[in-house]
Design a protein around this nucleic acid. Sequence first.
RNA 1: GCCAUCAUAGCUCAGUCGGUAGAGCGACGCUUUCGUAAAGCGUAGGUCUUCGGUUCAAGUCCGAAUGAUGGCCCCA
Length: 730
Amino acid sequence: MIQVQLPDGSVKDYADGTTAFDIAKGIGERLAKATVAAEVNGTIIDVNRPLNEAPGERPLQFKLLTEKDAKAIGVLRHSTAHLMARAIMRLYEGVGLAFGPTTGNGFYYDFDLKTPISVDDFPKIEAEMQKLVELGEPFERFQLDRDKAIEFCRDLKQDLKVEHMETGLAAHESVSFYRQGEFADLCRGPHIPDASRIKAFKVLSVASAYWKGDAKNKPLQRVYGTAFFSKDDLKEYLDQVEEAKRRDHRVLGKQLNLFNISNDVGQGLSLWLPKGATVRATLEDFIKKELLLRGYTPVYSPHIGRVEMYETSGHFPYYRDSQFSPIFGHDAGQLVDYWIRKINDGKLQDCEEKQFAETAKLMGCEVAGDALRASTKEDKTRILHQWERNQERYLLKPMNCPHHVQMYKSQPRSYRELPIKLAEFGTVYRHEHAGSLNGLLRVRGLTQDDAHLFCMPEQVEEEFKSTLELVKFVLGSVGLDDYRVQLSLRDSKNKDKYVGSDAGWESAEATLRNVLESMKLPFEAREGEAAFYGPKTDFMVKDCIGREWQLGTVQLDFNLPERFDLEYIGPDNKPHRPVMIHRAPFGSMERFVGMLIEHFAGAFPLWLAPEQLRVCPVTDNANEYAKQVEAQFRASGFRINTDTRSTKVNAKIRDAQLDLIPYMLVVGPKDQEAGAVSIRDRIGGKDLGMLPLGEALAMLQKEATERAVRQVVKSKFRSFDQDQGEMFAE
RNA sequence: GCCAUCAUAGCUCAGUCGGUAGAGCGACGCUUUCGUAAAGCGUAGGUCUUCGGUUCAAGUCCGAAUGAUGGCCCCA
């Protein structure tokens, strides 16, 4: 007998060998037909697996997953990946199978193929898949001991699977397979009951990837696809992809002259053109005002800092590979640094070392000879390192926090001053891989809307709450109100990985959880995802076409106060250690504006638009009056221009419309006579009619100061990218 | 950093078999003076990303470098 608890709370007994399908059938035929998989004690399993095999507590927490459950789509896609692999094996000779997982909005399967697959082959593959769907064969699970399984895959000539079982799955005594007709694949599952459930699918693209993601391994061909329970859902998804292409911020950025990334300046280094800079400055001014109201104080810090400071913070050694090389005060610095690293890696040959020493001496490094004569590796590095530490070495700032920590340390602190909130739009530099740069979304020089809060442990709750409220507020100001929060906690089984006391972590994690709950923010706790220095929360924000972006972040830090030995004097007249909160509501200005361009498809709301209004005189005769109108609006703080070209007014309106100017002020003799303007709304191209100047001004001012967002249509799209963004606060 | 593809006027692109460069839009000039998505005519604008090679001859073929795009990896 097995005890099962259904979602309604009722507990029922079933005979051993009962499957989810049996239970569904017991409830109703139609439910059984709609059931895709079952969730048992939080794990998704096949509908035809005996429930007594499920591990975990009894009674089993049991839930049927139908096509309506968000979790069911992953099962469908994984099965479609198998189907695609089977189709490709039918079409090509000697296909090696690697991995075939699901992704945020589809799936892929990696193949080792003799002939490359191209886009032209997709229809052929899809046709073969369709045949398999029509066969409607079941996905059958079977279990083999590891030895047997290895033998089985060897017979199938699936070398990659053999290797994976010998290495990655070495700890597993037995492994599971899924069979569908002639096709059998090593797979953990779960799968849909049979192929006829696959109602809509598409092969999307092909790219190269490495076996197990390691460039040392052989390159494989990764074929991407997606699947849905209905044709409508698939169409909706494909429309979304089209829509995303239309909104590409790199294309719009060029068209609208917002920003430019020039070869001559360097990869990943953005130039903010006047229009893009206006959007950014408007956002920055808005935040700065808000921060003043919330007790933050502005600070500024330089773009470089001594390497030692980043060694103390721990970031220099750890992130060296993704930083720009240090700037050395001494000519020989770079050489000596390279020399030390070679010694440490044990890759230095005698002749090379002599060359280094000679060159270093030529460059004026006197200790080079001593290092050469030193007998042990340790002595050599000690001598060289000592020399190096006496030189000036600077790092292009990879983050702002060490600078702000130094500001905290610049004087003794009393508990009465806390919390201290230091805010700076700090520009930092990171040497991101060339292949991962992407417009404004991934750059090498970026400005964080950064701030660091130094507070007493007992203030953490309140301060954490206030930062979350700030993030909510600023996201709302641009009309972003659809988001969820990821709460990253430490891995409770692996406590050694983290700094700070056990009690400190426990109370901090409980505090974060309480605050999120009390604020009724939808959040998802992720154990083991915390940074080594503290728990954190990230805002995953949905844009108007349903894509998810990782933007703002709030992080607790026990580490830096420790490393930099930060203190405050408490009411007991004894020194105490403060806690730091890092936070960046937008993340980086680059990424945020890039995201906004896509969110608004370049059509910014009035308060953000780089050019808010454009005066379109009907003929040259109206130019003078147009200029008067322009001057009046400009004096009231509007960003406004007049189109004085001697073209037809239709052309002026068309160009203003294409430049995505929120409102056009059409003026001619009639308006001049009435002291009015005729307003045209960009949205829908509506003629709002003639308004007296004062009224027009008041109306537009109201919209701008309210930061109204009029146009963003909430998308019907349900699927979204699991877009992994950057984590900005340190 | 790795794999694949690509690089022609300010922008979007054409350029056949290797024979010395073309369009539309934009800019500029002249004409036009027009009321809610494109007036007409004309002019200027190019070391075909760079370097090297093959050839009588290279935008075109070959090699390398640089950059971009897509994917992998990474993302404090």
